[in-house]
Design a protein around this nucleic acid. Structure first.
Length: 296
DNA sequence: AACGGAGTCAACCGCATTAAA
DNA sequence: ATTTAATGCGGTTGACTCCGT
């Protein structure tokens, strides 16, 4: 307890709700920067890196915490991984509400699954993957697992779920492949740069300094102190938080996981936009055959 | 009910890059 | 121009939960 603010002590491990509160208030006041000052000023016995990571992965607004990847998101990740390799942070910028850690975890889970399901054909390294993936699948219908929990929507009805999470085959259904046109796919990065986001996009942080009406963030309901707060810190935690803080981001609290309904307008369409009836096979021309071996 | 394997997730570490002094 | 600190990123790990046996 006392040692938590001893000189040089650095706390590791899971974050408590009180630490989250302190961190949120710090970001609320100063913006998502100066992470190292959180420790140097005695607000938290955590490194700047740890604070930043916690903010980015858990406390940042608009995160889809607790939602499984929708089929649409999986498709985006698979395509972008094929294109960029393991550039998780870059890939995450294409997925609203997802962090690089989310993408990374999703991918490693998927890789393990594939390795298990086809032990004699281990998944290739990113470098190897970069040089392949031109295998054509001559069928614009594939089996799809039952729709994942988060984001069941029309999008998912219109595209395939190529490889992962293949469990009970009786749960599969046949769906039509989406239409992907090469130009959009190839220019994906420039496309995303041109998108006008409807609400606060992940990669832009509101100006915390320019307004005295700082953002409010949710409090964890149960106060339970597992380390003493410094006087400066008390200042940070005493102000009440606005329970409706998420409204500011034009979004309700995410209990219903309706996020993917916005995907069509906020994400690069990988060629589907305004062109929904053409060239259904294009998507899978960019997948390696291993993606489909399971179905054989 | 107990156990073990699989899946998921949070958080750490080390290295690379960028910014500031 | 160089050094140092801060930040960002990807890989990895360990804890936890779920599910089948």
């Amino acid at each position: 307890m006392e040692r938590e603010f001893e000189r040089g002590y650095i706390k590791k491990g899971p974050w408590s709700s009180e630490e989250d509160e302190v961190l949120l208030k710090h970001v609320n006041k100063y913006g998502p920067r100066d992470w190292s000052s959180i420790r140097s000023k005695g607000f938290l016995p955590r490194t700047g890196k740890s604070c930043r990571l916690r903010w980015v992965n858990k406390l940042r607004p608009n995160l889809k915490t607790g939602c499984k990847f929708s089929a649409e998101e999986e498709r985006v990740v698979i395509e972008l991984q094929e294109q960029f390799g393991n550039k998780w942070a870059k890939i995450a910028t294409y997925l609203e509400g997802r962090t690089d850690n989310d993408v990374k975890n999703f991918w490693s889970s998927r890789r393990k699954r594939m390795e298990r399901s086809s032990p004699r054909t281990p998944s290739p390294s990113p470098k190897q993957q970069k040089n392949k993936g031109k295998d054509v699948v001559n069928n614009n219908q594939v089996k799809v697992e039952k729709v994942p929990e988060c984001g069941s929507n029309q999008l998912e009805e219109n595209f395939t779920y190529p490889t992962s999470c293949m469990g009970n085959k009786e749960e599969f259904k046949m769906v039509n492949l989406p239409d992907l046109t090469k130009p959009n796919y190839q220019n994906m990065e420039s496309d995303i740069n041109g998108i006008e986001f409807e609400a606060t996009p992940l990669h832009t942080v509101p100006s915390f300094e320019s307004s005295s009406a700082a953002y409010n963030f949710p409090l964890h309901p149960e106060p339970h102190m597992d380390f003493p707060l410094l006087p400066e810190c008390q200042d940070l935690v005493q102000e009440p938080f606005d329970p409706n803080f998420m409204d500011m981001f034009e979004q309700k609290k995410d209990s219903d996981c309706v996020w993917s309904q916005k995907l069509g307008t906020r994400l690069p369409t990988l060629g589907t936009e305004g062109n929904s009836q053409s060239s259904s096979n294009c998507l899978f021309q960019d997948f390696s055959t291993e993606f489909f071996e399971y179905f054989a």
